[in-house]
Amino acid sequence: MTDEPLLRVSALSKFYGSRVGCDNVSFDLWPGEVLAVVGESGSGKTTLLNCLSTRLLPSSGTASYRMRDGQFRELYRMSEAERRFLMRTDWGFVHQNPADGLRMTVSAGANVGERLMAVGDRHYGKIRATAVDWLSRVEIDEDRIDDEPRAFSGGMRQRLQIARNLVTGPRLVFMDEPTGGLDVSVQARLLDLLRGLVTDLGLAAIVVTHDLAVARLLSQRMMVMKDGRVVESGLTDRVLDDPRAPYTQLLVSSILQV
């Protein structure tokens, strides 16, 4: 295990005019760590995620990422070409709505293979074999490889999106409500799959969710956001079992018991 973090975030803020998106967020993320960002809608968690994944430029603050060569690079000073390259090789982004992260009109196999082709893979047979392997890892039958995601259920689409993101062996994956909008049983399967993949591949992940159960299951660390600010952070089980901030206590006490 390395002693250096993968991602260093310092005093990151994003303002929409006078409105606060996220305000003064700082944290480090180490390889293999899953960080959950929780809070209600409008708390700034998605703004934070979009800033970190460079889909949005922050108003101030810095974020540096340790590249594969061990050098830290300031994300917001990279050229767009470099950032986009990072996005499709060393990073992944799992959208809440799979349609936002998939090409709905090309086959499942091509969806998985696209990143490989984007980095210059030009052997059809190898690309297809890799796609078959990844489909099986996300529990999609091999005989669905030539079907379009339009013909898939919500849970399958989400699993396909995950395979599409992980095929290049990224080290950091951003997830925006990865289980949102899925049935509870489908959610459970997906969570289990994600847990397994994260452990097996040693992925670092930043997961935005409003579902505290998802956060508990997937993450080791947690940040609670309210009105754009981080009101509490720490070990996931510590934050959930011994919430200190008034807002976290409210959030935890609002969980429905089954």
Binding site: R84, E114, M117, A118, V119, Y124, D146
Partner: peptide, 18 residues
């Protein structure tokens, strides 16, 4: 501009798959 042409091969991949 960024010479991102992986998508073009997606089209050819689809052809071969189909």
């Amino acid at each position: 501009a960024l010479e991102e042409y992986g998508l073009m091969h997606v089209k050819l991949y689809e052809d071969i798959a189909k």
